[in-house]
Structures are given as structure tokens and as C-alpha cells.
Design a protein around this nucleic acid. Structure first.
Lengths: 339, 339
DNA sequence: ATGAAAGCGCTAACAA
DNA sequence: TTGTTAGCGCTTTCAT
């Protein structure tokens, strides 16, 4: 019951060679004779030797581990992204540390420090703040970083993002073209890249079409279900409630749907709705929602590839990739006032 | 741009003490004088020292990392579980390696070897196979294991599972009490604990109520959306199609819903349905489905606590915790043939 | 209460 | 082609 770990020394003794030679065989250095290679391999097999990666990491001063710091794995949006990171890491023989930061900058900092302490090879992160981001610590410690989904200002890192401004603009413009004038937005705080950019797309679309921006129709809060519910419920109580809603993410949309249902309103007859993010039950909601589906898997895949490329060659140029989201026009935004 | 890592030696020099003393201060050994402690702390602060956890792990022969091997993070069922594992690990100052095994035993083995090689403190796993499970390797290497959601036969490990047999029995019995006779099941392969137990609950409920078990009504395959779709589509083509369906997980249910909709059938008028797993869009499907909601977060939390307890004291008795799932009876199982 | 020294398992110079 | 040796950064005896 005392599991004595078999080390490289045991293998060396068993194969009658030095530890260095065993090491060479393991790392497939093409400088070992067939005879010796065979003996070592046999000894490894016989003893059931597993190399100690911790020792190797210490010695070579870098590990085959990448850190993934995201806001919340339970958000369906991030699930696909996480899966992509894991898949891509797996293909390249990396393991991944999963860390949930919960939009909490202190928690994010704590995890960043742990990533440095664990000497990870690199980090993929959805930064909580756009400005003054603590990821700077990583760079100072020489750990490559890739920002995904959200950007980091004034920090020279690779990033993979969606064209939030443009897509938001399109969604809102679509509502306008359907004849809507009273369009409200429910968004996250402007410290988050995506929230800020989507809000900008919204206001720009309104003013480009000569529509006034009504402050009562702009709600910003924690981008979670609860806030989506409260914001929409409140706005529906207004003297002049909005006729159309723009929800900037899936959780807010969930909350909005709850408020709308509670109020007994129907989509799109009583209120129109467009939103960011696929919600995998979209096709079961009637009518289907008009949404901008984000390529979450692609985001994660590209971010991880970027990171691994940089790990392999830190000198390559910083890259910023922008992917487009696909807008699916569906019935949820029709305007019943029009013919 | 060359980030020179500051080590314990640098701190020692700065504080004019030995490395041993710095180490003592860091690990809060209560045997350092106030004077020295202060100097060391100041030096750490000044130099921005971060301990190298890899070196520590090598030295103390164990890390503050746990491995999590699950079938697929993209399955909503596992998302809550993963989150719980991460939360609990975080509270206890552990990091977690996220590994997707994809029901692939080879991939599972590869990850298990990596966990051993990385010298993790313990592993939480949803084993792919009930029998002859490769987790044996972990135990032989002295790494504690906790099985969650599924069990491992003939291996002495802690586990946290749901009472699948009982819950399945209840769901099927409910259909029977609603007057259904032609009840089909779509399940996973019997090598997976949960699939086997739920199938057993199904057959037992049928025979306890004097109903024959129709082999045509038992479908087993990869527990994914695609198989759910194919299995239900095929059965609906039968001369004598089933009048009620029992889906043993969320993905299969998704597939079933697709097949049912494609066929133009309505629930429960044309076909009744009960299922395992919450599907977060349940409340938006009309009518709401009768489902057994599994306490996924609780599963993950308890499993991780069990694991950490065992890491702290390997001598404690093996524990098997069984949690109950909550059955939500909703309209999806009503029998239109009855008054 | 503190320091000196050894060693965790591995890899990489350097020698042979 | 192979072996010898040193050392990655840390903790922990054992002295003092």
C-alpha cells in the first residue's frame, strides 16, 4: 500500500545505463544506439515508469500547461470556448488549468499570481477589465497572454475578438428597418469591452437613422440573468415603455424573457427582441429569436493556437484577430404595426 | 524584456538571512523572530517575489492541484458539476486540470497517466467504464480518486452518485399510472453505470406492473443528441410505435424532441415523454417536460470535498454517497386517452 | 531562533 | 554514443 514511485534512476539501473541515457531515450534524442534504446524501453515497460513532469518542469524552466481564466464556465457562451481551448491544448500536448474569475478582479489577480507561481507556459484570458488590466503581471513575469472575447487596452497582447460594434449596429438597424423607434438596450458595464462596444453600436445605429437616444432606454448592470430581468421589468413599467429590446448577451436575454412572460406579453406582437448569443434552446422558443450567434468554439481555438505559437516563438508579431458573428434574422423582431 | 525570475535566494540576500529562514516565513512556521519576519516580508514585497510552486511540489512530493476528468464539458449536465469542483477546489486553495475524455477510454487513460506524471494531489473522475476501469493506475501510484456521477466496480474508491435506479423507476411508473402501456427507453450503453441503472429501473417498473418488455422499445447507443434523434425517429416508424418515451439524459432528449417535431407530433397529445436531467430551456418548451433534475452542483461539491478529505488523511474509510434527484412532474406525460 | 547542507527527479553541459 | 556532474528552487533535517 506504500506506492514507491519509480524514477529515472531505477530505470537506469535496470537497463544498465546512466540516467542521462534514459533521459535521452525518453526525449527521443536521435543519438542513442538501437541496443541501448531497446534496453531502456524494456526497462521502462517492465518497471511501469512514468516520468515526473514536475521535476522536468523545474529543470527546463517551463511546463506544458496553459492557464485558462474565464468569467464563468456555467455561462453557455464560455462552455464552447473552454471546450475549444481544451481540445486545442490536447492536440498540442498541453494540459489546462481552469479558473473562474466571476467578473471579480481580485479573484482574477489571485489566479494570475497562481499561474505565474505554477510556471504555466501561457494564459488565455477573458479579461474582466479593459483598462489597467492585471495581466500585465504575466507579461512582466515573461508569461505569454492571449485575450479572448474581450480586449485589453494599453497592453501588447495577442487577442481574438468578435466585431461587436458592427454586429450590434446591424441588429439594431434591423429593428429600425422593421419600423421600430422605441428601442431599448440592456447591457453590461462599460468596463467590459464587449458591453461597451455593443452599446456604441446601438447608439450609433440610432443616431445614424435620426433617432434620439433615450437615457431611460439604456440599462447597464451586471450581465447576468437577474439584471436582465430587473431592467426589462422596470422598463415595461414606464409610461412610455420600449417597443423593442436589444439584449447584449444570453443571460440578460434569459432574464428579459422571464420579465416579458411574467408581464404576459408576446414576442414580437407586443414587444420585439434581438440579442447577442445563441441560446441552444432558441429553436424551441416560439417564435425563434433574432440573434447574433458568436463563434465561441472558433474564438477558443484561435486564441489557443495564437498562444501556442507565441510559446514556441515569443518573437512573432502581436496579432489581433477579429471574427464576425452570424446574425440570424428570425421572427422575434417583426413589427406588427407595419403591413 | 528578459524577465529574470526572483527566487528565494534573492529574498534571502536582500533580507540578510538564509534561504531556510525565508522558507520558514513563507510557510508561516511560528518559529521566526519578529525582527527577521519583518525583514523577510519587506524583502518579498520589495522584490515582488512569487514562490515557485513547481519547485515546492518537487521537494514536498505533492502539489495543490486536482485533476478533473469528465466526459464532455459541453454537456450542460457536466457544466454545473465542473463549476462545483472548481469552486470547492478554490476554497481549499487547489487548482484544477480540466480534461475531457469524450467517452473514449484511450483518451481517459492518457489523461490518467498525465495526472500521475504531473503528481496531482487527487483526481475527480466520471469513469467511462464501470468495470476494469483504468483509474486503478491512480491508486497504484498512490493518487486518491473519487468517482462522481458514475461508479467503478471492483475498485475501492470514494464515490458520489445519484439513485438512478429508483428515479428511473419512478419516472416510468409515472407514465404507467397515467395509463401508458407502450413505453420505450432510449439509453446509453450498459458499460456506463448510469445508463445501466436507469435501464434496470425501466424494466423493473414495467414488470412490476405486469407489462411486457418489448425489445424493439429498448434502444442503446452513444448518449448524444444524434443517437436520441435516430432512435426516436426509427421507433416512430414502427408499425406499432411507442406512446411514451423515457430518455435517460439531456442530450438524448434534445435529439428526441427534434425527431418528434420533425414528425409533426405534439407532446403529450401524440406522444408522452419523461426524461433525466434538467434542460435549462425546459420552462420555455411547451408543455414543460417531466424530468428528474439531478443535483449536479451538489455532486461536484461533495466529490471534491471527499477528495480533499482523503488527500488530507488517506486513512479515512471509503465512502459512497447517494444523492436523490428531484422529479418534476409536468404536463409532458399526460395521457390523452384517459378522461 | 537561525544557518548549513542535502536532495526531490530531471536535463544539459562537458568529457571521454 | 555514453557517462559524469552540476543545478533548477525549494524544504527539511541536523547543527549551532
Amino acid at each position: 500500500m506504500v506506492p514507491l514511485p519509480v524514477t529515472i534512476t531505477d530505470v537506469a539501473r535496470e537497463a544498465n545505463v546512466s540516467r542521462a541515457t534514459v533521459s535521452r531515450v525518453i526525449s527521443r534524442k536521435p543519438i542513442t544506439s538501437e541496443d541501448v534504446t531497446g534496453r531502456v524501453l524494456a526497462a521502462i515497460e517492465k518497471l511501469g515508469y512514468q516520468p515526473n513532469l514536475v521535476a522536468r518542469s523545474l529543470r527546463v524552466q517551463q511546463s506544458k500547461i496553459i492557464g485558462l481564466i474565464i468569467s464563468d464556465i456555467q455561462n453557455p457562451f464560455y462552455t464552447g470556448l473552454v471546450r475549444a481551448v481544451e481540445d486545442t491544448a490536447y492536440k498540442n500536448n498541453f494540459l489546462v488549468f481552469l479558473c473562474n474569475s466571476d467578473e471579480d478582479i481580485e479573484k482574477e489577480i489571485l489566479y494570475l499570481k497562481l499561474m505565474i507561481a505554477e510556471k504555466v507556459a501561457g494564459v488565455v484570458i477573458t479579461p474582466t477589465q479593459e483598462r489597467n488590466n492585471p495581466s500585465r503581471m504575466l507579461l512582466e513575469a515573461g508569461v505569454p497572454v492571449v485575450a479572448v472575447d474581450r480586449s485589453i487596452k494599453d497592453l501588447d497582447v495577442d487577442s481574438v475578438v468578435v466585431d461587436n460594434y458592427k454586429v450590434a449596429y446591424e441588429l439594431v438597424e434591423h429593428l429600425i428597418q422593421d419600423g421600430h423607434r422605441q428601442i431599448a438596450i440592456v447591457s453590461g458595464p462599460s468596463t467590459i469591452t464587449t458591453s461597451r462596444e455593443r452599446l456604441e453600436g446601438y447608439t450609433q445605429a440610432l443616431s445614424d437613422h435620426g433617432l434620439a437616444v433615450n437615457p431611460l432606454f439604456i440599462r447597464q448592470g451586471l450581465p447576468k440573468e437577474e439584471f436582465g430581468y430587473r431592467a426589462v421589468r422596470d422598463m415595461l413599467e414606464l409610461e412610455q415603455p420600449p417597443a423593442a429590446l436589444f439584449l447584449v448577451n444570453n443571460l440578460l436575454t434569459l432574464g428579459a424573457l422571464r420579465a416579458i412572460r411574467e408581464k404576459g406579453l408576446r414576442i414580437p406582437d407586443d414587444i420585439a427582441l434581438v440579442a447577442f448569443d445563441d441560446i441552444n434552446w432558441t429553436s424551441f422558443v416560439s417564435p425563434p429569436l433574432t440573434v447574433a450567434v458568436q463563434p465561441t468554439y472558433e474564438l477558443g481555438r484561435r486564441a489557443t493556437e495564437l498562444l501556442i505559437n507565441r510559446i514556441n516563438d515569443p518573437s512573432i508579431a502581436i496579432e489581433r484577430q477579429v471574427i464576425s458573428a452570424s446574425v440570424f434574422i428570425q421572427k422575434s423582431c417583426a413589427n406588427h404595426l407595419l403591413p
